[in-house]
Design a protein around this nucleic acid. Structure first.
Lengths: 196, 196, 196, 196
DNA sequence: TTCTAAGCGAGACGGTACGTCCCGTCTTGAC
DNA sequence: GTCAAGACGGGACGTACCGTCTCGCTTAGAA
């Protein structure tokens, strides 16, 4: 991960080129979407007009780079307090997941990240830590809240998270079935307490 | 896919070496599990004591080879008639999926196949056609039957298939959570008509 | 060194491309002369229209390659019997050394080989073994013979070899002074028994 | 070459760090001897505890730096007047050359300088101008003097210089033969008028 | 038997990407 | 003005696979 140690005060050497960093992240996401999932430093560097050496200086693998790119692109809001009831905010999260996975820009990067996670153990750990876990945690909070409110079936919260999100990943990554509002509705309906 | 054109009768030249084919399939599955997902013809050939040329003659990519290896390893039974009710047979199918995904031998190959599907479009098509679709079809049949019997909630059958199987793939491929009998029970319970 | 194991009988795989080998050797010598001493596999491969991989298959360093190229270019004759007296044949050898060192084709390769020998210990050993020693041995033979005949001063033969050849290398490699017939005459005159 | 523009008086900015310069020169010579001939600014800087920028400020190549280092290390005495006859002083010069070339400290640097001269034209010019020519001039003076005295054979003085020094370089750089008092004696004996 | 088609191993070849190392230039802050 | 720190582009390195190709040997049914 690109450790951004420019924090406090006057660093000594030549300062890092921020614009270049942006160009690299953008090029990586763009390539993952357009050219396909198998992105290497070589092509990213060429596309960004940067030197391969520079990429190696800041990231130890294309997977790390793509993760950075994705995280900056989505600007995940950790707010879990929606205006309405817990189950409504939860539906919004589910829908957001579907949209990010389907989006031409973020979707390509995410698919590459998932493929990397399947291939490499470190990549899987990174993918979990920086992408999956934060989102699962946010969802779990709402689920527990919904259970307390009586609007969500009382099950293992982690299991409920799986039921809500796994089908979305599955459709986008493997079956190619539609990911639309109807799906989100059905998912929520499945874990909601009936007759509410 | 290994076009097995030995069908009818006396072909002219030297007959294909069946034992060799088995060694290759076994080596491929074994490598995918032990060495990791990124298997190439080179290493498979070396591990099987075969020549790279021979692999290229019969398969056009490691993905195809692995698919062959997997399909022969699992011997999928297309029987949908179980001894009991539809929902019981369905649970057996869900459990079987979980076991195949977790099994050290078949699990490795499957993970490699999934990774390939994420990377390459052709691979995704193959993976669907030969692995996912047959299993989804079998499950859908039982689901429709269960709905008619009144034991399964009336929803879009394809949606129910996703709910039952996607969490399993998700746990094995991404989150690493346990895939056990309890999970299978919860999955079935979620789509079963309550108070049955 | 390119081990040419095509000797006896029917080898199994695809046979080595002899023409390609020649193109590579020629390109290497040509580059060493024209572009300068610092030749790498990269540029040789490009110049020869070959793949870098192929060069690595046959030689483990540009130094080895250049040595091969040189040895095939000069076709050193190990004959020490000249038509005339020993000292005459010796003079011919001295002159030949001067010509090979000054020649635009062989000279470039030799300069590169010498530079390599100065930098790397293995290269120095190779350079001695395949270039210097054979030529020194041939000269020493004549020198001993000349001493017996009474035409050459009685000194340590190795010392005489140095005196005859070192000035030539020195002029070509370091001082840039002329290497001509006059020099050869003076060298021979210096080690000849006077009044002969 | 390190342009030493500290000559007269009050320069404006921070004065050059003389101790640092010494550390750099020492580190360069030491590295050339210990690590091998292929020395770059990078390693020299690290070894001297200096910044690469500083090296680039004062020298335009490692070759120049090494030349500086060598010239300061040997403190060549341009005195040609020895206590005895010309030929004795000449022998002392020959012996000195042998010692400098064999010395672990100066020898490494010299070998690197020679290698550089073989590779690069500018380096060769520098090597001649600052190393070879001054020494050759001093020797030539003595040789001419010796010829007038009748103690040295009447030949082209430059040729005699070659005969005296080239074998030494040749042995150290290429053949690895011993460079000892016996060799010096033989060299002098060869160009001396016999029966003196 | 001989002929001929196919299977198979061995290995050459061009090509692409990899991760590393060093180079030379540059931009900054501190002294 | 000197120096250290460090970013950056660039080039070559040696390695690992990839996909294609040209061979020779083997196996078997067909002529």
């Amino acid at each position: 991960m690109s450790t951004n140690n420019q924090g406090e005060g006057g660093r000594r050497g030549r300062p890092r080129d921020a614009a270049l960093r942006q160009r690299i992240l953008a090029a990586a996401a763009e390539l993952a979407t357009r050219e396909g999932v198998d992105v290497g430093f070589d092509r990213i560097a060429r596309a960004a007009g940067a030197s391969r050496t520079t990429l190696y200086r800041w990231w130890s693998s294309p997977h790390e780079l793509l993760l950075d790119a994705l995280l900056e692109a989505v600007q995940f809001s950790h707010e879990t307090e929606g205006p309405g009831a817990a189950i409504e905010t939860l539906r919004a999260q589910v829908a957001m997941a579907g949209r990010v996975l389907s989006d031409p820009v973020t979707g390509g990067a995410l698919r590459a990240l998932a493929a990397g996670a399947l291939v490499d153990e470190d990549a899987q750990r990174r993918f979990q830590e920086h992408w999956l876990t934060p989102r699962r945690d946010a969802a779990r909070l709402l689920i527990v809240q919904g259970m307390a409110e009586g609007s969500i079936l009382k099950r293992d919260p982690d299991f409920v998270v799986d039921v809500l999100f796994a089908p979305i990943y599955h459709r986008v990554y493997f079956t190619g079935q539609p990911v639309d509002e109807e799906l989100f509705d059905e998912l929520i309906r499945l874990i909601a307490v009936p007759g509410q």
